Computed example of a mutant assay.
Amino acid sequence: MAATDDLEERLRELRASLEALPSVSEPPKTTLRILGSTKSEQHWNTLLAYFLDPSQPHGFGPDLLKSFLDRVQIETDIDLEYFHRDIEAVSVDTELTSPRDNRLDIVLRAPNAWFVWIEAKVDASEGTKQTDRYVKDTHLGNEEKAEYPDDGQHYLFLSKEHAPDSSAGEFEDLYWRHVVEAFRDELNHAHGQYPERSVNQLRSSCRRSSG
């Protein structure tokens, strides 16, 4: 009888442990699915956009996005007051082209509240007056910047630490190591709450980004 009671107790503990595992609506994407056929700069843009996007099935929800935005405000002069409702509604888009034929790498948008235009560089440097053109452009893809208040329009130039900074004064400079630090801080406080595959993907990406 004692053995039966002990077995039942172990089964209850196992069931409770399984129910405590984090779940997502669909399995996290494999790295190959995230990247498709992209390489180099597009490779990093695709990975970064995937992990920042709360709607993607990585299991981090909005946590990496919040960690990223918090680090942006620490390392730059961007003053971005966001609320939880903003984060839940944020969209993350890549490779949008404006009517002026300016192509943005990544844009984070909280509808009618704020946007962050991210120009990301890995090995290449900024093109001639590239960031100046982006600031003067009136659109984010097909959407008018006028849909956002002036104090909600933000520009971020992401590059390696010893590369040249952006030429446009409106762009704030951030380095890839800052992104890595933000993501690692989040993982260090995770306590097993995120899917293992996503954690391993992110750790691997952080190692390559900081290398």
Rank of each mutant, 00 (worst) to 15 (best):
A20T: 07
Y194V: 02
S23K: 08
H162M: 14
L156T: 02
A163S: 15
A113M: 03
R12L: 15
S98V: 13
P28W: 00
L18N: 11
T97K: 15
L65S: 02
A110G: 01
H178Y: 09
K160D: 14
G152A: 11
R33K: 02
D173N: 15
V179W: 12
V107F: 05
F183Q: 09
I74G: 03
A190C: 15
D105G: 02
Y148M: 07
E143A: 12
I34F: 02
N45M: 07
R10N: 07
D151H: 04
Q56T: 10
V135M: 08
P99W: 02
E196N: 07
G141F: 12
T30C: 00
Y134E: 10
D53P: 00
L35K: 05
L156I: 01
R33L: 00
S37C: 07
R197T: 00
G127C: 07
I87S: 03
G192I: 12
E26L: 10
I106V: 14
D77P: 06
E119H: 15
W44R: 09
R33W: 00
Y50A: 06
L18K: 08
E26W: 03
L21K: 08
H162I: 01
L65R: 01
D53W: 09
R177Y: 04
L52Q: 10
D151F: 03
D173I: 08
W117P: 04
L64K: 07
P111G: 02
T4Q: 12
A110D: 02
D63V: 15
A3F: 05
T94M: 14
H162Y: 14
A2Y: 06
Q130V: 09
D70T: 13
Q201W: 02
S98K: 13
E144Q: 10
G152S: 12
I87K: 00
R103V: 04
E170F: 01
R197D: 00
R197E: 01
E143Y: 06
G61I: 00
E196W: 06
L202W: 08
G211F: 10
L187D: 09
Q193G: 04
D132I: 12
D185I: 01
T131M: 03
S98L: 12
E186A: 11
K145I: 09
V72I: 14
S210L: 14
V180G: 05
F115M: 05
R71H: 05
Q130W: 13
V24Y: 11
V92I: 06
H43S: 11
S55W: 03
F171M: 08
I118C: 14
R207G: 08
S55G: 09
R12V: 13
H84Q: 14
E181V: 10
R100L: 09
A110R: 02
V107Q: 04
P28Y: 00
V179Q: 09
D77G: 08
T46C: 14
D5P: 04
A124P: 10
E88A: 07
A16L: 13
S37W: 07
T38L: 13
Y175I: 11
